[in-house]
Design a protein around this nucleic acid. Structure first.
Length: 645
RNA sequence: GCUGGCGUAGCUCAAAGGUAGAGCGGCUGAUUUGUAAUCAGCAGGUUGCGGGUUCAAGUCCCACCGCCAGCUCCA
């Protein structure tokens, strides 16, 4: 048979040759630092798998995502083996590899405590040192059932019963431990370099909260101590950037037990940043043909019945309040209000598209356990907008939204995105609202808009909500983490429920398309992301305080105030540190506040009408005239600098 | 909501059933200082809230509120 190395030449091998031998023969390094597994005709296979027919091989190392998965999956088996040894009564759940690590779910009456984690870790080291080979075995169902029944592994039994009966069950054996597993795995436990257990948390069996809760142990594994250390440092860096800590330290926002969970308060500093973002948002929307709306926070329950929210969104809505004997509900969304504005008079095809935006504050019930700083709250302001358009305008409108979204995000320093297109499940078209043609048109428009932007995206069939196909854009921050950002949905629900129409050039009523979109998501969440992205050190145009004037002695106070007044008149946000402290102290304080520029003024500067410029990252930049500093600040702040702050 | 952990001064953290403390921050005073912390003094607390056990509770028990790590869900 012919076996070709991806991108290389083909060679002849006897059928049944193992992947490891073929790779070695083709000059690929096989081992813990080389190939860990391989893709055989696009399918991940272990090194001990045999190749029986012509094939193309691509070696997988730890650098490949699939290689990491194999590596860490083996680590999860080692974890399970260690736990089984140390805690005989424990029952096994599942244990996959995940991004950056792995976990294994266990059933045990007593909780795992941190001291036990280090014991388990030691046992894992022993298992790695023992270098047990992992042996793949195919057995028939009954044998597999007998094996796990004998050990009381009821979760495994449940899994086996659900496996396709036509396919043999595979087990992986390593020393005294055998697990049900599809594999593939590393050839032996000794291939693992450095493992580390991180946390324990509860997890429902099969992700179903009605079922038993297991204990999930999270860990990670790397080829060597160095790489593990780098990863732990990365985790440390993420902790250092935590917006909850920075928000407190930099006095951006706060939460209060007295107010209630998930309800944020913006302090003056945070308020500045938020206002800057909102001002930028508004002017960019006006520039792109949007109008701005304002709508109330409450509406009668009837409205939410008409919109359908009482049917499918009630769990996220707060209890009704009685006003003069009529039920009112706090809004979880802005759309019904915008729809009513659309309906306030007849609409002509000539005035479409209508692009209506609102920074609308909505309230949604979130279960207490999911709240998380600004990233998950119960009251938040969406940068919402609805576009009403004709079918022939749909694609251009979606294109425009994606363009706006990318422009906005890039303005905030996000350069990398992951785009997903959620469409209908082609098998079950009946469970969706709206017409077949409508869906086809909408999905085509979304897809075409992404193509025109040259974006690579994942098409996810069956991921669309019942009333709308959508585009989701995830932004990737400075640490490589992904956050849900813009979404664009084509709504088939509201136009029907509110019987929206416009008069066409034929004089007859037509149903408009309604696009629901947000480009930042929610102000709270976006600010949270932004704080972490910049580690609290906002770029000049967004910094709540852009420059701090630091007089050397009290004698320069008057001059310092003059400098501040000049910068302030030019629209810059400045403060004078008037405390009687040494310059080092003031610099340190300004530095910790992450103020972009420190302008030191002493006797010399006061004489020469200059300032000594210090940048928070670059350090001392030397003496400049005030005009030079103003020009430099304007240049750096860029087009979004506002003269009239 | 569930599992586990936590809640002491504005912040970070001590006090292992026996008198609530430190550093930073704040205030006052002295110092008038040249690129990441000058010195001294003072103030600051119903130990998240409410019950209970005990001669005695920050510490033990119960309930609630909030926070943290996850599960599930989402902007």
């Amino acid at each position: 048979m012919q076996v070709r190395l991806a991108g290389g030449t083909a060679r002849e091998f006897a059928p049944g040759t193992r992947v490891a031998e073929i790779l070695t023969a083709l000059g690929v390094e096989v081992g813990p630092r080389g190939a860990l597994a391989a893709e055989v005709n696009g399918r991940v296979a272990g090194l001990d798998a045999t190749v029986d027919a012509d094939a193309e091989l691509r070696p997988l190392t730890f650098q490949d995502e699939a290689g990491q998965e194999v590596y860490r999956h083996t680590a999860s088996h080692v974890l399970a083996q260690a736990v089984t040894r140390l805690f005989p009564g424990v029952r096994l759940g599942i244990g996959p590899a995940i991004t950056d690590g792995f976990y294994y779910d266990f059933h045990r009456e007593e909780p795992f405590v941190p001291e036990e984690l280090s014991r388990i870790e030691q046992e894992m080291e022993a298992i790695i040192a023992a270098d047990y080979p992992l042996q793949r075995e195919e057995v028939d169902r009954d044998e597999a059932l007998r094996h796990f029944a004998a050990r009381g592994e009821r979760f495994k039994l449940e899994l086996i019963r659900e496996l396709d009966p036509a396919v043999p069950v595979t087990l992986y054996r390593q020393g005294d431990f055998t697990d049900l597993c599809a594999g593939p795995h590393l050839p032996s436990t000794g291939w693992l370099g450095a493992v580390k257990l991180l946390t324990v948390a509860g997890a429902y069996w099969r992700g179903d909260e009605k079922r038993e809760q297991l204990q999930r142990i999270y860990g990670t594994a790397f080829p060597d101590r160095q790489a593990l250390k780098r990863h732990l440092e990365w985790l440390e860096e993420a902790r250092r950037r935590d917006h909850r800590t920075l928000g407190k330290d930099l006095e951006l926002f706060s939460f209060h037990e007295e107010i209630g969970a998930g309800l944020a308060c913006w302090h003056p500093r945070g308020g500045r940043v938020r206002q800057l973002i909102e001002d930028f948002w508004r002017s960019e929307h006006r520039r792109r043909g949007y109008e701005i709306l304002f709508t109330p926070h409450l509406a009668r329950a009837d409205l939410w019945a008409t919109s359908g929210h009482l049917g499918w969104y009630r769990d996220n809505m707060y209890s009704p309040m009685d006003i003069d004997g009529v039920e009112y509900l706090i809004k979880p969304m802005n759309c019904p209000f915008h729809v009513l504005i659309y309906k306030s008079r007849t609409r002509s095809y000539r005035e479409l598209p209508l692009r209506w935006g609102e920074l609308g504050t909505v309230y949604r019930y979130e279960r207490s356990g999911v709240l998380h700083g600004l990233l998950r709250v119960r009251g938040f302001t969406q940068d919402d907008a609805h576009i009403f358009c004709r079918p022939d305008q749909l694609e251009d409108e979606v294109y425009g939204v994606v363009d706006l979204a990318l422009f906005m995000l890039r303005s905030f320093g996000f350069e990398h995105f992951e785009v997903a297109l959620s469409v209908r499940d082609p098998q079950r078209k009946d469970k969706y609202l709206g017409s077949d043609e409508g869906w086809e048109r909408a999905e085509a428009a979304l897809e075409a808009a992404l193509r025109r932007h040259g974006l690579t995206y994942r098409r996810e069939e069956g991921e669309a909500v019942f009333y709308a196909p959508k585009i989701d854009i995830k932004l990737i921050d400075a640490l490589g983490r992904g956050w849900q950002g813009p979404t664009v949905q084509v709504d088939f629900n509201l136009p029907e429920r509110f019987d929206l129409s416009y008069t066409g050039d034929d004089g007859r009523p037509h149903r408009p398309f309604m696009i629901h979109r947000t480009v930042l998501g929610a102000m709270e969440r976006f600010l949270g992301n932004l704080i972490e992205h910049y580690a609290g050190a906002f770029p000049l145009w967004l910094a709540p305080v852009q420059a701090k004037i630091l007089p050397i002695t009290d004698r320069q106070l008057g001059y310092a105030r003059e400098v501040a007044a000049r910068l302030s008149a030019a629209g810059f946000r400045v403060e004078v540190d008037e405390r009687t402290e040494k310059i080092g102290y003031k610099i340190r304080a300004a530095q910790l506040e992450k103020v972009p520029y420190m302008l030191v003024v002493g006797e010399r500067e006061a004489q020469g009408n200059t300032v000594s410029v210090r940048h928070r990252r670059e350090g001392d930049l030397g003496v400049s005239s005030i005009d030079t500093v103003l020009a430099m600040l304007k240049e750096e702040a860029g087009p979004r600098h506002r003269e009239a702050w």
